[in-house]
């Protein structure tokens, strides 16, 4: 990825022009990130941020079905006409858990946990599965060969292969036959300073924010009350944490 200097020059010039518009766009809809460090569209991501989510399952009605529906609507997955139930895409699902001994029960939404050391990215032969500098784990479908090794490696069954040709995808969420996909933490939103769709739909039960910023709401909440990882034994240091599980 070589960057020619004239592109950089262009970017600097462009930033000036865009800055005003960007601010307007960011602030206007009232969905702006409450945390410091919210990103402008023109800004390059960096490892100064690590985006994460804290999900309070006790506060999510219906096991989080609402956030699943919001994700589906945002990205358009799950309605593949030809695929059977085992083949349909699932970026997020609600899982019911009942501890055998104590009979304690709870529901939680399970999606890509945006691991710091993501097994999917480790095993991907082409590097299509990768972790962005700001901690979001994505698939670069332009170089994904559809080998599904990442799906074998994921401890959360968070990834799906698209089993058929798709049409009329969402403009902000490209998806296509033969490539693997999963939760993107709504990068198209957070890159322009908006909240992920599930967070918006969660009625405050999901906090989104910067795990690296000790003053952010999510860091404060995690510090005060803790947050569990699914399969913490694997030591993946996930970006998605849970309370109430």
């Amino acid at each position: 990825m070589s960057k020619s200097s004239n592109i950089d020059a262009y970017r600097r010039k462009f930033l000036l022009g865009v800055a005003g518009t960007a601010t307007a766009v960011t602030v206007a809809p009232g969905l702006l990130l409450r945390q410091a460090g919210a990103k402008a569209p023109s800004e390059e991501i960096s490892d100064k941020n690590r985006w994460g989510m804290l999900i309070d399952v006790d506060r999510l009605p219906n096991g989080g079905q609402g956030v699943v529906d919001a994700c589906k609507k945002e990205h358009g997955w799950g309605d593949e006409a030809h695929s059977n139930d085992q083949q349909k895409a699932h970026w997020v699902r609600t899982v019911h858990v009942k501890e055998k001994l104590t009979e304690h029960e709870f529901d939680l939404p399970v999606m890509c946990q945006h691991c710091e050391t993501a097994p999917c990215a480790d095993v991907c032969p082409t590097g299509a599965s990768f972790r962005r500098e700001d901690g979001v784990v994505l698939v670069d479908k332009h170089i994904c060969i559809g080998c599904r090794y990442c799906m074998m490696a994921c401890p959360y069954k968070a990834r799906s292969l698209v089993h058929e040709a798709l049409f009329d995808q969402k403009a902000h969420s490209p998806r296509g036959k033969g490539t693997v996909e999963s939760c993107t933490m709504c990068v198209h939103r957070i890159d322009v300073g908006r909240l992920p769709a599930c967070v918006e739909a969660s009625n405050g039960a999901i906090i989104f924010g910067d795990l690296n910023d000790k003053n952010s709401e999510i860091s404060q909440a995690l510090k005060a009350r803790g947050g569990k990882q699914i399969r913490a034994d694997l030591g993946l240091n996930t970006g998605v944490r849970y309370q109430g599980i």
């Binding site: 990215a121 032969p125 082409t126 590097g127 332009h142 170089i143 060969i145 559809g146 033969g178 490539t179």
Partner: peptide
Amino acid sequence: LGRVDHVIQMATGHLNFKS
């Protein structure tokens, strides 16, 4: 493979040596 046509890109350096 899901996208055989993308394999050719591996020859142009899209190779992850941790894999």
